[in-house]
Structures are given as structure tokens and as C-alpha cells.
Design a protein around this nucleic acid. Structure first.
Lengths: 121, 121
DNA sequence: ACAAAGTACCTCGCCTGTCAAGGTATTTCA
DNA sequence: TGAAATACCTTGACAGGCGAGGTACTTTGT
């Protein structure tokens, strides 16, 4: 993983909720999917992954059930709840606001060296 | 402060370095400036602020000196070092990469509800 | 036939960044 | 005179992330 973990911190919940917006899934697949989507630049550590699931379930944003695989390892599936969908929308909005703000703060108008948006130089 | 702190976490160092790219400044003013730039939506807690200064100075990215105010409270000024400028560029690039990634992950193509970029609906 | 690697789950305890709460000292202004 | 603003700092706690370790089954390669 090349992306520093702290930059993602606080977004893991949103990322998992987003993953479940497309339909039920299970931990291992969700994480592999993140890995693929980011070309291997990012994946959650398993310890983190299951902490997130637990936290989201306790908050009522997701619920879980055991799959009925007749073969292969057992899988615990997760589904997003209606409350979870609301929360997802909320968190996305929050991310938009926060990212605009960070953008503004790390590319201040008064910075003498313009490192930001280099294509606009 | 309306922005959840965890969303900013990991960016504070970059924000402080960015503040110093425009010239030397001191803690209280930097923080007030952040407050103003964000219309009061964000400011660092003082405890955090001074932790960041300490961390950055120990890393050699900034250096500090006491101002020679003849009046008013004493001020400790901070200056960004050449290494600090490099680090700033590095962190901005990292932010770009991370934010694009988060964007992609929380607005997945397979999400059934398109909450993202509503103006493009 | 057997080992290694892959799939899939989980827990414990540590680390790090943030911050609430507390403190100091000076100046300004009503 | 005393509150508010300016300006600095420290201690201890909390929460999220994760390293390290574990279980159990299946697939693949030799």
C-alpha cells in the first residue's frame, strides 16, 4: 500500500458503506475489490476491516448474516440498512466539504510557490 | 468547527507547512488565519497546533525563533526550511493522489444511488 | 499424496494524532 | 478593576488503524 494510512483515516466507514451501496458483499471480497479499484495502491488491513464492520453494525448502518455456501470457507455477508444509506449520503457530503476545504488550505493564495494544480501554471 | 476532525486528520502537517510557504508566522496567527480562510468552519485546537509545530521542528521541516516584540505578548515565529519546502511538495502530491482515490472509492461505479457529483445527474 | 498458497473469518494489544482541560503572562478597553 | 483578547505551553485520555497472531477450509502445483 503506497498511500499513507493517516490520509485515509476517517474515510474507511464511508468507503465500506459505499461498497455496500451496490449490493451485499463480504469482507474479503470488499477488500480485494478496493485493492483492484485502486490498482493495488490501497487496501484495508484485516484488523481494520473487521473493526469497521463491527462499528457500522453497532451503529445500525449495516447488518450481517452468514452465507449458505455449500463449499468453500463460510462468508459473513453485510447489507446496508436504510439508515446506513442516509449516513452514506451524509458522509459523502461531508467529504465534499472537507476536501474542498483542505484544497483551499494547502494551496493558499499567498503561497509563494504554487505547487497546486500545476497544469494551471 | 463544523468539519469532523477525523476527516482532516493527517493533513494538519501539510496545512501548517502551507501556511508557512507564504512567509514566517506564529501559532496564534496561523490558527486565526485558518479560521478566517474557512469562514469559521475549521481551526486547530491549540494542543494540536503546538504538537504539530514540535513534530515539524523535530523533523527539520520548520525552525523557530522568538520575535522581538517590544509590546504585546511574546511570539514564537516559525519558518519553513528548504527540506520543509520539499516535504510540502511531497505532501501536496500525496494529497492529490489520496483524494482522487477516495473520490473513486466512495463514488463507485456500481453504487446504485449516485450521490456524487449531483450536478452531473 | 502432500505442501503451499489462497479464501475467509476473527481478536488482542500497541501506536499515533487529536484534543479537553488545565496552566502562564501580557495588553487593551470599557 | 476586571473581562476579553493575545500568545504561549503541558498533561493525560481517547479513538482509529494495524501488526501479529490465530482458526478452518479449499485449491493448486509437484
Amino acid at each position: 500500500m503506497s498511500i499513507t494510512a493517516d490520509l485515509i483515516r476517517g474515510h474507511t466507514d464511508t468507503i465500506i458503506l459505499a461498497s455496500l451501496m451496490g449490493g451485499d458483499s463480504y469482507g474479503y471480497r470488499i477488500n480485494r475489490n478496493l485493492y483492484n479499484l485502486t490498482d493495488g495502491r490501497y487496501e484495508l488491513k484485516e484488523a481494520t476491516l473487521y473493526t469497521v464492520f463491527k462499528r457500522l453494525e453497532e451503529s445500525g448502518f449495516i447488518r450481517s448474516y452468514w452465507g449458505d455456501e455449500s463449499t468453500g470457507a463460510r462468508r459473513r455477508y453485510y447489507a446496508i440498512t436504510p439508515t446506513g444509506r442516509d449516513e452514506y449520503q451524509r458522509q459523502v457530503a461531508e467529504w465534499r466539504e472537507a476536501s474542498e476545504m483542505i484544497e483551499k488550505l494547502i494551496c493558499p493564495q499567498n503561497a509563494q510557490v504554487r505547487a497546486c494544480q500545476p497544469e494551471q501554471l
